[in-house]
């Protein structure tokens, strides 16, 4: 197992290298000029040229690439072309809102969606099953921003229970943190409840017909034990996969949710950087997103082994 993990980590290195090269080339070949953005509307061509020169944008692309990679290997992500702020500081400042939202959303979604999925499978074909599926379809179908605005209107504007927007670090107190993360979490959770509940239900229906479930029932086990111990555990692999991918999706940025609730997360940082052609920031956040996917895929694979003893990695 350890050997497998080491192999996977080693295999991630060329993946990250390819991502770095691809992102770098894509940005340099895309239209847009950071010098023009810095200089503003009234800049003359001479002024633009002077700024390009200072930023090194006049250097050949391969020189710019190797400069960037060599600094990257020393742990230097560079500074924002526009604000001059170190990129690593910008990313670290944006990680907490994003990670917080990802954790609260996924935890809440699991707590609600897995029991819903199990119940729907157990009561297959009944009104409860149809109700759960209807909720799932609704969660999938309604755009996140619609749910977000409804949540704000009800809980913030009408009932005045929660603030409209913003983020407070958990280190500033659990109360302020919770009251600001509550609405974005609820909004995003609906989507993940739909996703996880459907997968749970489908997987449970598959295993409920298996011999070992019939055997468990034949042994006289209580239905709850049959469902949770014999059926659900054997459904864990697809459920964990969906949860893992969902977590990675949130970490790499949920722009609409972040924008509507004014959460200063990775998604907004990415979009702002792309619109401003802030190359060092875009390159760093995309590398980070790639790293998150690599790590989460690895963790999912490890979880497979822990959850299903039949799976072995050579």
């Amino acid at each position: 197992m350890l050997r497998y993990i080491a192999q996977r980590i080693l295999a991630a290195i060329p993946v990250m290298g390819f991502v770095a090269l691809f992102v770098f080339l894509l940005l340099r070949l895309s239209p847009g000029d950071p010098a023009a953005i810095i200089a503003g509307d009234a800049a003359t061509p001479e002024q633009l040229e002077a700024i390009r020169e200072r930023l090194g944008l006049n250097e050949p692309i391969y020189t710019q690439f190797f400069d960037w990679v060599s600094r990257l290997l020393q742990g230097d992500f560079g500074t924002s072309i526009l604000s001059g702020t170190p990129v690593i500081d910008m990313i670290m400042g944006r990680l907490e809102p994003t990670v917080s939202l990802a954790l609260t959303t996924i935890v809440l979604a699991i707590l609600i969606a897995v029991p819903l999925g199990v119940i729907a499978a157990w009561k297959h074909g009944t009104l409860i099953d149809r109700l759960v599926m209807a909720i799932s379809v609704l969660g999938f179908s309604v755009p996140v921003f619609v749910i977000a605005y409804v949540m704000i209107q009800v809980f913030a504007m009408n009932l005045k229970w929660l603030p409209v927007q913003g983020f407070k670090s958990i280190f500033d107190g659990v109360g302020p943190f919770a009251e600001r993360i509550a609405l974005p979490t609820l909004t995003l959770t609906l989507l993940y409840i739909a996703l996880i509940a459907r997968i749970t239900r489908t997987s449970m229906l598959e295993v409920m017909g298996e011999d070992y479930v019939r055997t468990a029932r034949a042994k006289g086990l209580r239905e709850g034990r049959v469902l949770m111990r014999h059926a659900l555990r054997n459904c864990a692999v697809p459920i964990v996969t969906v949860i893992g991918i969902g977590f990675a999706l949130i970490i790499s940025g949920v722009v609409v949710t972040e924008s509507v609730f004014n959460l200063p997360g990775i998604g907004r940082l990415t979009v702002d950087a792309v619109l401003a052609r802030d190359y060092p920031v875009i390159q760093a956040v995309i590398l980070l997103a790639s790293l998150v996917y690599v790590v989460i895929n690895l963790l999912i694979d490890i979880a497979y082994v822990l959850l299903d003893p039949r799976i072995r990695y050579a």
């Binding site: 659990v174 109360g175 302020p176």
Partner: peptide, 10 residues
């Protein structure tokens, strides 16, 4: 949860 959060904030 919302009420608890508000109380904590207060």
């Amino acid at each position: 949860g919302a009420r608890a959060a508000l109380m904590a904030a207060a």
